[in-house]
Design a protein around this nucleic acid. Structure first.
Lengths: 145, 145
DNA sequence: CTCATTGCAAACGGTTTGCACTGGT
DNA sequence: ACCAGTGCAAACCGTTTGCAATGAG
């Protein structure tokens, strides 16, 4: 879809008393176009180019808002920083603890695990973004030297 | 073992020019006795009782040191906070996103997954502490009301 | 016109750092 | 005695908040 916010969402938000501001559109759009997770700082940086005058506070508020409304997804990746990405696309990350490179893993690969975990613990797992650490092929090779 | 720091480790650290200070012993001991992950603030709180005069800075420095030396393990659990726990005991956490209760999962359950992931991606996964989010049995029940 | 949202700047909480002192070795 | 480690206080960084001004509805 090419719409910034689908009309359904706009209507829904509107009916609940929220407003669709240019700022929120911009933040959402940035995440849609980034197609990867971004830190609030990265969002701010890009937002400021598209929309001079943007405040960091507004970035945080927009991200929180969009996350609360389910339009974007907040995830904790290593390093303690919270990152945001466009919702609706379940995937996970591998991060190389040596070179920091990342690699996405399709959700399907992990789905079996989730089912097993759920059975064993009674939890209803709904993590949609988990980060694993390790060594990427290159660094693994290098370490062996 | 009842030793605070095994003699081997003391010797090893010593040979590399590090010193075993009472502060480091205290921090390590707190983590050993806690038998769960603690935030730096929690460590500080306990350390200050055992050892009045302890500084927060020292807690952070000790934790970093012990983590770098492999004596304790730093893990990112949700909420972005870094927590520390005694090393050598691989496990993972489920956190209920509703009531925040946590539940540990034995490493063995996930070991198969790691092997699969490693095969598919070429990464050498060595995450020893991954956190999954979901709903615990109680909250799952409650939600259904 | 109203009230949700923004901009601004100040506050906040967790973590790190510079520096002189202390104490482990 | 030497230098790694500590205490203290100030700096830092990412995030949140109070308040008056703005602009979406």
């Amino acid at each position: 879809m090419s719409n910034i916010i689908s009309k359904d969402f706009e209507k829904d938000l509107h009916e609940r008393g929220f407003r669709i501001t240019p700022q929120r559109r911009v933040v959402l759009r940035i995440l849609q176009e980034a197609d990867e997770h971004l830190t609030p700082a990265e969002v701010y940086q890009r937002a400021n180019q598209l929309f001079p005058g943007f405040t960091e506070a507004t970035v945080y508020r927009s991200l929180n808002f969009l996350a609360a409304e389910g339009l974007v997804l907040a995830a904790h990746i290593g390093s303690g920083q919270l990152v945001y990405e466009i919702g609706g696309y379940n995937h996970h990350h591998l991060i190389c603890r040596n070179c920091r490179s990342t690699c996405a893993v399709e959700h399907e690969v992990l789905e079996i695990l989730y089912r097993q975990l759920a059975e064993k613990t009674g939890y209803q797992i709904d993590s949609v973004h988990v980060t694993f650490f390790g060594l990427c092929p290159d660094c693994k090779e290098q370490k062996r030297e």
